[in-house]
Amino acid sequence: MSLAIANSIDDVLTALAGGARPIAGGTDLVVGARQGKSPLPESLIAIDRVPALSTIEQTDGHVRIGAGVTHSRLMSDPLLVERYTGLADAAALIGSPSTRNVGTIGGNVMNASPAMDTGAPLMTLGAIAELRSVSHTRQLALSDLWTGPGQTSANPDELCVCIVIPQTPAYSGSAYVRLEYRRAMEIAVVGAAASVVLTEDGTIASGRLAMTAVAPTIVELVGASEAMTGMAAVDAADVIASLASDQAVPISDLRGSDRYRRHTIGVMAARALDAAARRAGGERIGVPVNRNLGIGAAR
């Protein structure tokens, strides 16, 4: 096995074109290999010290988050905590401090687990992934990127270089909550993210919801905005909860039965909506919502 350390995006793209696979923190790749899920690739290119992959940049109308930005930074970056709070909520729940110190947003997105925490909030915030190879750059909606558990539509020679999120409007807020059995080193039993924009009278102008661990990929709740527009968030909770339970297609596994997941995804969707709407209305709810509103595992 070989491992080279890249200093630039070009180094990485050349290596990928030659058949290497990228490694950042290794929190999925190396752990997966040690558990016997799949052996380490024959040729690895380390991307964790490419400066251009670890920037958070505000451009006209967007924020560009480098694929190498760690979860520790996602949960504490002032701009993300203020404007893209649902993403910070998710990052703060991942693994433990050591996982968050080396695990990255690009790794979480490209590993494509249906239980990934950053996926649902990214989807409600309208994020797209920017993929680059030696020959081209393309941008893909996350719904087009994720094709199944651990599967993406990216080609092997493409690197996810950044996640691009449109600027959030005034009177908007977002949140991510998850059902969990313990507070650290946990994977979502189910999870839900919400992002809402309020009108000046406090009713919902528009909103999006997405769900974790109830389908082969992270999925957006269809018809959510239409179902809640014009309502107060508190009145929309029941509608959103039943929509979520109706659209969930979960499996049964060690962490929960399909029936349990179908019920609890409704509860989580309603709580995500509540927290997002309260934030949109100016209430300061700290990151992560799970700890600050007493959702999930008890201390």
């Binding site: 491992l3 490694i23 923190g25 290794g26 190396v30 752990v31 964790d48 050591s98 110190n101 080396v102």
Partner: peptide
């Protein structure tokens, strides 16, 4: 802090 069991030494 990093878990050294699952971090490649070469990295």
């Amino acid at each position: 802090p990093v878990n050294s069991c699952s971090y490649l030494a070469a990295q």
